[in-house]
């Protein structure tokens, strides 16, 4: 696909007249790339996706998906996109294949076409063996794969994935990444995904936007973003943690920035491998004993920390608790749903 798949200009969503979930964001997703929307819980990722997939009406601003206006041409937009929501939306009471065919019917795809496509997609996500089993018997990873297959039944040009690996264990998460890459290769789509896993964004995405509190605070390829930090990160501790030797370190050539946090120095340096020994020499020359030292090439983690001022790990902690609670609730709801006989 040529040209820009998604163009967003000043997109804004305000809930209940005072809660600004998305605040005048602008970005462009090029055709054929995997674009990652990275941010903590409540940053506005899902709200943005919901506006782009025409489920939520923007308060302000405009956007086009596949060159169709999301406000005025919503039905054209819906025809050219595929969506995998955060939740498991496949019907537990139906079989795998039935779920895919249901999705096909929602797009008005004739049965003879949809049957062929469904078999093809089931093979691709390796669920052919389980297609006649009720979804209630599927594992988390299998359900994710089924969602991926459902979302692709209309051969979308732009594929939206909202937290595609939320709540999955490490192996299943890695497997899901492989499926996403495979699907991308097979169908040459543009993929727009949200995630709060930094390694996921780093590994999968061609470009990443970091969103925090409804605003995009950085955008670029993972490499560009890492390089924008301007160097490697070195951390260092000395025996006498009460002493502050920041000024001493700052005098070392190629040291760009020194921050002392809880007795540890976080030092931004150029050419870490060569500068590190110089720093140690300088500190030792003043009679201090170096107790710990580490040198890291910047990761998206560091980028995130740099731009938002806090670590995503802290947020993840609460998110994990939140999602497990949500899962438990969903289970309870499922049982009640069956009990009431709808």
């Amino acid at each position: 696909m040529n040209g820009d798949a998604i163009v967003v200009e000043g997109l804004t969503k305000v809930f209940n007249k005072n809660l600004v979930a998305v605040d005048h964001i602008d970005f462009t997703v090029k055709g054929g790339e995997i674009f990652g929307f990275l941010g903590p819980n409540g940053a506005g990722k899902t709200t943005t996706i919901n506006m782009l997939i025409t489920v939520l009406k923007p308060t302000e601003g405009k956007a086009t998906v596949c060159n169709y206006d999301i406000n005025k041409q919503s039905s054209e937009v819906r025809n050219c996109i595929g969506v995998v929501p955060q939740e498991y939306t496949a019907d537990e009471d139906l079989k795998g294949l039935e779920n895919i065919l249901l999705c096909a019917d929602l797009y008005g795809i004739p049965r003879d076409v949809s049957r062929k496509r469904a078999e093809e997609l089931l093979a691709l996500v390796e669920l052919t063996k389980f297609k006649d089993k009720q979804v209630a018997t599927y594992s988390g990873g299998m359900r994710r794969r089924l969602e991926l297959a459902c979302g692709l039944i209309n051969r979308p040009h732009v594929f939206f994935l909202d937290e595609p690996t939320l709540g999955l264990d490490v192996q299943t998460r890695a497997a899901t990444w492989n499926y996403i890459k495979l699907l991308k290769k097979e169908y040459a789509m543009t993929i727009f995904m949200t995630t709060h896993y930094l390694e996921e964004a780093d590994m999968l995405c061609d470009r990443v936007a970091i969103i925090d509190r409804g605003k995009i605070i950085a955008i670029g390829t993972p490499n560009d973003l890492k390089e924008s930090l301007g160097g490697d990160i070195m951390t260092l501790s000395i025996l006498n943690s009460k002493l502050d030797v920041s000024d001493l370190i700052k005098k070392v050539p190629r040291v760009k920035e020194v921050k002392k946090q809880d007795g540890t120095y976080r030092i931004k340096v150029e050419d870490g491998e060569e500068t590190a020994p110089t720093i140690i020499d300088a500190v030792r020359a003043e009679g201090h004993k170096v107790t710990r030292l580490s040198l890291t090439k910047p990761t998206l983690d560091e980028v995130y920390l740099e731009y938002t001022g806090r670590s995503i790990r802290e947020e993840e902690e609460s998110k994990e608790g939140f999602s497990s609670q949500r899962l438990a609730m969903r289970k309870a709801r499922g049982q009640r749903a069956r009990g009431f006989g709808h």
Partner: peptide
């Protein structure tokens, strides 16, 4: 009377959102 219940569940479980993103 109970038919409304399934609407509530579809919204809660995210199924409704998925359907809304299709051209139905």
């Amino acid at each position: 009377m109970f038919s409304g219940m399934s609407m509530v569940f579809d919204r809660r479980l995210g199924f409704l959102n998925k359907v809304l993103s299709t051209p139905v």
